[in-house]
């Protein structure tokens, strides 16, 4: 086929732009996703994640740049792209007045699957998502978690090469969240390419092979979760969390006096967080000095742990701590508010 990309780059995004009026939601974004990869898109509200996904799903026309999915251009070959994608959007794509199975049958038919194949796959996914016993109930009677499971089954009916999951665990209880995460891992093992957006750092860390951090429509960082964490830990700083049952002022002063200790934050009456810059002896030396100092003051250590930087730290470091009201989905900046508000609602 013409213009087919190398097999391992199932998504190629090249200089993609999307403007709403004079607000640029996606600002010259470029990235590639390999076949079989779970690719995370992280970013504050309104950073442009969903806009990017909608463009890749052919639901939104880019203002500039190109994107290809499975080798097909999302604008010029939209209908071929649609053969290869499945979408779990922010909003449930499910009809409340149809039963679970009727919903699946409907979307199966719209994907031109033979009835027998639809039933076969519906049986499989319903079973896999533990929804078989509810299949003949109206979707409107389901809990959010049940709806989301049917929604995912629906997105998988056409066995897409690329599955887009836009905050799939948003608003779900811990049980459903866990089962959906396990399910994503299973799909990953089967070789499906998955694009996942989430606000839960733990989720991204657990599921994603690579994570792109998006802010103000730009990709500000793109690496494996480990690689991203090194961004914030590379300066070699050691963070310790300590819980001492008889924590006292003098103990804190003595710890502060240690040459390697940079700062101490009190977490509570009995616990503190200690930031240290290891010297010649490395972190082992810091650890034993800290322990020795506490012992010298007669402190009883209940817990001591080293704190690894999380994706959350990376995220906050890269995107700042300011809240994103201004650039959030439906509230646009003052000027031209009316028009933009209208065009951004979906």
């Amino acid at each position: 086929m013409m213009g087919r990309e190398p097999q391992d780059d199932v998504i190629v995004v090249d200089d993609l732009v999307r403007e709403f009026g004079d607000f640029t939601a996606v600002d010259h974004m470029s990235f590639r996703v390999h076949e079989g990869e779970v690719f995370g898109l992280l970013g504050p509200n309104g950073a442009g994640k969903s806009t990017t996904i909608r463009m890749l799903c052919t639901l939104l026309r880019p203002t500039g740049g190109h994107a290809r999915i499975a080798g097909y251009d999302v604008v010029r070959q939209a209908s071929q792209v649609r053969q290869h994608i499945g979408l779990v959007a922010e909003k449930l794509i499910l009809y409340d007045r149809l039963t679970a199975r009727e919903n699946l049958r409907l979307f199966g038919k719209l994907n031109h699957l033979p009835e027998q194949v639809i039933d076969e796959r519906a049986d499989y996914w319903l079973d896999r998502l533990q929804m078989t016993r509810w299949q003949d109930h109206l979707a409107g009677t389901f809990s959010t978690g049940m709806k989301q499971r049917i929604n995912i089954a629906r997105a998988l009916l056409n066995m897409p090469r690329v599955l887009f999951l836009d905050e799939p665990t948003l608003g779900l209880d811990p049980q459903t969240t866990r089962s959906i995460r396990e399910f994503i891992m299973e799909l990953h093992k089967q070789g499906m390419t998955i694009i996942l957006t989430t606000h839960m750092m733990a989720e991204a860390e657990m599921l994603c092979d690579r994570v792109g951090i998006v802010d103000h429509g730009k990709m500000v960082a793109l690496d494996t979760p480990g690689g991203l964490k090194r961004l914030v830990s590379d300066n070699g700083r050691l963070v310790l969390e300590l819980e001492i049952s008889n924590l006292s002022e003098s103990m804190v002063r003595d710890l502060q006096a240690l040459p390697e200790v940079a700062s101490i934050d009190h977490e509570s009456a009995t616990s503190l967080r200690l930031h240290a810059q290891p010297g010649e002896g490395g972190s082992t030396e810091v650890l034993s000095r800290v322990i020795a100092a506490i012992h010298a003051d007669g402190g009883r250590i209940l817990r001591l742990s080293t704190v690894e930087p999380t994706l959350e730290d990376v995220f906050l470091k890269l995107t700042g701590r300011a809240m994103r009201d201004e650039a959030s989905e439906k509230v646009a900046p003052r000027r031209g508010h009316w028009r933009r508000a209208a065009t951004r609602v979906r």
């Binding site: 052919t58 639901l59 071929q80 649609r82 909003k91 449930l92 499910l94 994907n111």
Partner: peptide
């Protein structure tokens, strides 16, 4: 359908 999001489901079907 547009408001509740189901239209997207129809629009991404290859029809």
């Amino acid at each position: 359908e547009r408001e509740i999001g189901t239209l997207d489901g129809i629009l991404i079907a290859p029809i």
